[in-house]
Structures are given as C-alpha cells and as structure tokens.
Computed example of a mutant assay.
Amino acid sequence: MTEQTTTTTNQTPANVEVDTSYENDSSYGDELSSYSASLTSSVLEYRHENGRRYHKYRDGSYLLPNDEKENDRLDMVHELCLQVLNRKLYLAPIKNPQRVIDLATGTGIWAIDFADEHPQAEVIGCDLSPIQPTLVPPNVKFLVDDIESEWAYERNSFDFIHARSLAISIRDFGKLIKQCYRSTKPGGWVEFQDWNGYPYSEDGSLDGTALQRYFDNVYGAFEEAGYDARPGVKLEEWFKEAGFVNIHAEKFVIPCGVWPKDPHFKKLGVWAQAGVEAGLEGGALAALTRFKNWTKEEVLLLASEARADGRKRDIHSMFNFYVVYGQRPEN
C-alpha cells in the first residue's frame, strides 16, 4: 500500500469576524467503571499542594491537578471538541472496531461515549489517576498506566487508538506515536486530537495583554521542563515517521470568548472561554511554583489578570486545534 496523505483545513474562514453589536466590556454572563489495574498504594494516594490535588503514582510526571475542579474542566473540553467536530467523537474511518484504547483518558468521558456508540467493542481507558466513574457501560474498563513508559500491551492488538489534548503532558510524542503503531493491528487506525497551546490574534489585539503573558510564562515553563505545548501542528509528520499511511490532517480555528459575530464561532468561543478560565490556576500552579520559584500568590494574581483580559471583547484570541489520523498498513 502506498502512502496517501491528505491535509485539509476546516471550513473556518481566514478571518473570524468580530461581533461589534455589543459595547466592549469585561463580562460575558450567561453566554458562556469499574477500573481494572494492579493498584499500588501510590496509585490511591494523592499529592496536595497549593490547595490543589495531584496524582501520586509516577509523581511529578504530569503537572496538572486531578481534583474535581480539573475534572469539570476536562468535561468542558470534551463538550468543546464535540462542538468542533459536529458531535463526532473521532474522524477516522473505522469500521466495526473490536478493541479500542483511549490514552490518558482523564475522566473517561470519551471512552464511555465511544463504548455506548460501539457496544460490540472492548474499550480501555488508561490514565495515571483512577478518577473515572464506576457506573459505566459493561464494555469499558479503566487501567492505571503511564503511557510514556514502555507499553505492556501486546503488539498488533488494537483496532483503534485514540488520544486527545495531550499538550503539556507528553515529553516525546514521536516515541508515543511509534508505540501506538506497534500496538495497532494491520489495517487499524490511530487518531490524535491536539492543540497548539499558545493563543494568537489576527488583529494584534492579544499583544501585550496579561492573557498573552500568562501563556508565555506558563507554557514556557512547561517547555523548559521538556513538555511539548504545541504538538498539534507536528502530528502529521510524527505519523509519517512512525510508518502510518492514509494520513489525514485537519486544522480547526477556535475563538476564545464571545467576540465572534458568527453564531457558530460565538458558541465555540463561549465553550473555549469556559475551559480556559477553569484551567488558569490549575494549569499554572505546579509549573511556575516547582520550576520557576513563583509563589502561590504570584500565580493566582497572573491567573486573575489573564481571566480579566480573556473577558474583554476587544481582545480577539484564538487557538488552533488539530485532528490527525492514520492507518497501519495491511501488510
């Protein structure tokens, strides 16, 4: 089979038009399983720091919290992705999958939704933290696992491997995607959905703002610590290097805030803004206090200033979101 690579952008126009029907203000109001694993004591313990809870298993390998606030944010991001993808959980052309794994499953919401859609499939969700619900479809199970360690899954075992929003969580995406290749059945599919974590504006309105300063400081700290904050744009190349064929890459532009005029983009903007606001403190605390010697108070001040800027209608920030899938060759 020869490699067929198709790169397609979504229907987002080059410029997202600003809604000027409102006066500029800083408020947006209403617009806005049981699991299976060989559990050690460290898995069930947690690290508490600066008022947030973190995983203890492989302590320090993942720098975002795993408490209820963070779980709510993850579920917001799930809904945002469904809005972006027209309520689809994935774009890969999979057919009758029998064995599926969701990497870094978080709250398990994607795995649960997929299991409901595909009752014939065995669905595994793996994560560093056992934070998933216990009342789940019978074809779902959750494992405690570190996907950056060498995989214990047998080779050629999955029909479909899915991963989403691993930016600032993974140090070596190339290695991870090669592990996915080895564990995918011939003819099976792998799909990654991920971000360029840095926002931007087409009109320069983000320049010099506290919102920009937040991401420069926080994501800069992650990158200095070895994490990739903008994997989305590089996913297609990593898929090629791993050996996948029939690769498809698609980019989606997501406004952040209620400033777009188009109703669809305004709706995306509300969800994106809600997700960003929910993650400002949790996303920054560990990275800046552990790596940059910031105090908790300094981090909270930066997050507060970024939140205020994010609500201003004259700051037109956007993020790029990428969906890339590829097939392991039949032979």
Rank of each mutant, 00 (worst) to 15 (best):
F142W: 09
D113G: 08
F114T: 01
P133L: 07
L128G: 02
E117M: 15
K141R: 15
T134V: 14
I124R: 06
V136M: 08
T134R: 15
H118G: 01
D116L: 13
H118D: 00
P138Q: 15
P138C: 09
Q132S: 05
L128S: 01
P133I: 03
E117Q: 15
D116G: 08
F142K: 08
V136E: 03
H118T: 03
P138Y: 15
K141C: 12
I124H: 06
A115P: 07
A111C: 07
G125C: 04
N139P: 12
I131M: 12
Q120H: 13
F114S: 04
P133V: 00
S129F: 07
P119G: 03
A111L: 04
P133N: 04
H118F: 14
I112H: 09
K141F: 08
S129K: 09
I112S: 02
E122N: 10
V136W: 07
L135E: 12
E122M: 12
E117L: 14
L128P: 00
L135A: 13
P138K: 15
P137V: 13
Q120P: 04
D116C: 13
I131F: 12
I112N: 01
D113T: 08
D116N: 15
A121N: 05
A111Q: 01
Q132A: 08
V140T: 09
Q132K: 13
K141G: 00
Q132C: 04
E122W: 09
V123Q: 03
V140C: 15
A111D: 01
E117Y: 10
P130D: 03
V136Q: 05
L135H: 13
G125V: 05
D116P: 07
E122A: 12
P137F: 14
Q132H: 09
P119A: 06
A115Q: 06
N139W: 15
D116R: 14
N139L: 14
H118K: 10
T134Y: 10
N139D: 04
E122S: 13
E117D: 14
L128T: 00
H118S: 04
V140W: 10
V136H: 05
P130Q: 11
E117A: 14
G125Y: 05
V140S: 04
P137L: 11
P119S: 04
A115S: 11
P133W: 05
G125F: 05
Q132V: 02
I124P: 02
F114K: 06
I124F: 14
C126F: 00
P130V: 06
D116K: 14
K141W: 07
D113L: 11
G125P: 01
C126P: 00
P133Q: 03
E117I: 11
A115W: 11
A121V: 05
L128R: 03
E122Q: 13
A115I: 12
L135T: 06
I131P: 07
A115T: 00
T134E: 12
D113V: 10
I131S: 10
T134W: 09
A121Q: 05
D127K: 12
